[in-house]
C-alpha cells in the first residue's frame, strides 16, 4: 500500500514539456518514446474497458437465464436445470465479515499507529514499524492456512464464552452450542488480522505528518498526552485514517483464500454470526468454480462483477477522501 504514502508531490514537470511541440520539429526518438508511453496509458484504458465488457457480457448471459431473482435469491444452484442463483447470502456474508473485520481492526490499528508514533520507546518503535511492514506482505494463503489449522481450534473457547454470556444479544447466540467456529465471526477476525498491517501502516504515515507545532502547542497549554492526541493529532489525521480504513475494507471485501479456508459456507442468511453458514463473493467463486458448468461459470462471473463494483465504490470513496484532505492540508501548510 506504499502507493498511498503521502509524499506531498511537487507539481508535475510541466515546464519540461517545452521541447515538445512549439518549435514544430520533433525528433523521431522523441516521437517513438512519447508514442510508447502514451501507448501504455491507452493500453491500460483498453484493458480496463475489456475487463468491464467481458465481465458484463458473461454476466448478462447468466442473469438472463437465471430462474431466481439474482439479487434476492439465497441459493446458488447455477448448475442444475433450471438454474437458480442469487447473491443475497453472498452480499450479506461479504458485508458482515468485512464489518466485523473493520470493527476489530480499525481501533486496534489506530492504537498501534499511536503506539508507534507516541507511546513506544524510540528503540522499539523503529523495528516495530519494520515488522508491521513485513507482515503486510505475508501472502493471504498463509493467513488462510494458519486460520484454518490454528485459529479455528483456538477460537472455540471464545465462541462458547460469547454464546454463554452474550447469547441474549441474538448476534452471539449459537443455535447449536458447541459447533466448531467456522463462521462469519471467525472469518471476520482473520480478515481483521490480515488488514491490520495495511491500516496501521497508512495511519502511521498520516499521524507522522501531523505538524509538530500543533502538538507542541497543545502540550504547551498543559494538555496531557491523551488530550494532545485527541485535540491535535486525531482531528488532523482523521480523514487519512478513514481512507486507510477504506483501503483495508477494499482488501477485506475481495479476500478469497482466507475465507475459503475458515468459513463453513452454505446458502444460509442468519443474524447469528456464530452459526456456521453464509458465504462471501470471492470464496463462493473459488469453491464453486470446480463443479461449474459453462452457465455456472458465467453466473460466478456475474457475482464477480458485483464484487468488482462494490470494491470500486469503496476504493473510489477512499480516493475522494484522500483528495479532499490534500486540499485541506495544502491550505493550512
Amino acid at each position: 500500500m506504499e502507493i498511498t504514502k503521502e509524499t506531498a508531490p511537487p507539481p508535475p514537470a510541466v515546464p519540461a514539456a517545452a521541447a515538445h511541440g512549439r518549435r514544430g520539429v520533433t525528433r523521431p526518438g522523441d516521437r517513438i518514446f512519447s508514442g510508447l508511453s502514451r501507448g501504455s496509458g491507452i493500453l491500460l484504458l483498453v484493458l480496463m474497458a475489456a475487463i468491464a465488457v467481458f465481465l458484463t457480457v458473461r454476466a448478462a448471459n447468466a442473469i438472463s437465464q437465471d430462474h431466481g431473482n439474482f439479487l434476492t435469491t439465497f441459493e446458488w444452484d447455477a448448475n442444475t436445470t433450471p438454474p437458480v442463483f442469487g447473491i443475497a447470502v453472498l452480499l450479506y456474508g461479504t458485508l458482515v465479515s468485512s464489518v466485523i473485520a473493520m470493527a476489530i481492526a480499525v481501533p486496534i490499528a489506530v492504537g498501534i499507529a499511536l503506539f508507534m508514533t507516541h507511546y513506544a520507546p524510540r528503540r522499539l518503535g523503529g523495528p516495530l514499524a519494520y515488522v508491521i511492514d513485513l507482515l503486510a506482505a505475508v501472502p493471504s494463503i498463509v493467513y488462510g492456512l494458519w486460520g484454518a489449522l490454528f485459529l479455528v481450534p483456538h477460537l472455540q473457547g471464545l465462541t462458547s464464552w460469547l454464546d454463554q454470556y452474550l447469547g441474549w444479544t441474538v448476534i452471539f447466540d449459537q443455535s447449536n452450542p458447541g459447533t466448531a467456529p467456522r463462521n462469519l465471526f471467525t472469518a471476520g477476525i482473520l480478515l481483521a488480522i490480515m488488514i491490520l498491517p495495511i491500516i496501521t501502516n497508512v495511519s502511521r504515515e498520516v499521524i507522522r505528518q501531523v505538524p509538530a507545532a500543533h502538538e507542541e502547542a497543545a502540550l504547551a497549554l498543559g494538555a496531557t498526552r491523551w488530550e494532545t492526541i485527541r485535540m491535535s493529532v486525531l482531528p488532523f489525521a482523521r480523514s487519512g485514517i478513514i481512507s486507510a480504513s477504506m483501503l483495508g475494507l477494499g482488501r477485506a471485501l475481495g479476500e478469497t483464500m482466507a475465507v475459503v479456508t475458515v468459513l463453513s459456507s452454505s446458502d444460509k442468511l442468519t443474524a447469528h454470526i456464530l452459526d456456521p453458514g453464509g458465504g462471501t463473493f470471492a470464496a463462493n467463486i473459488a469453491s464453486h468454480f470446480g463443479e461449474a458448468t459453462s452457465l455456472g461459470r458465467d453466473a460466478l462471473i456475474a457475482s464477480g462483477l458485483v464484487l468488482f463494483v462494490i470494491t470500486l465504490l469503496v476504493n473510489g470513496a477512499a480516493r475522494v477522501i484522500i483528495a479532499r484532505r490534500k486540499e485541506y492540508s495544502g491550505a493550512n501548510a
Binding site: I51, G254, E255, T256, A286, G304, T311, N315
Partner: peptide
C-alpha cells in the same frame, strides 16, 4: 489506475 488498484484478484482471474 486507481480503479485497477482495487480489483480483487479473483476478478482479475475471472477476466
Amino acid at each position: 489506475v486507481d480503479v485497477m488498484t482495487g480489483i480483487p484478484s479473483i476478478v482479475a482471474g475471472l477476466f
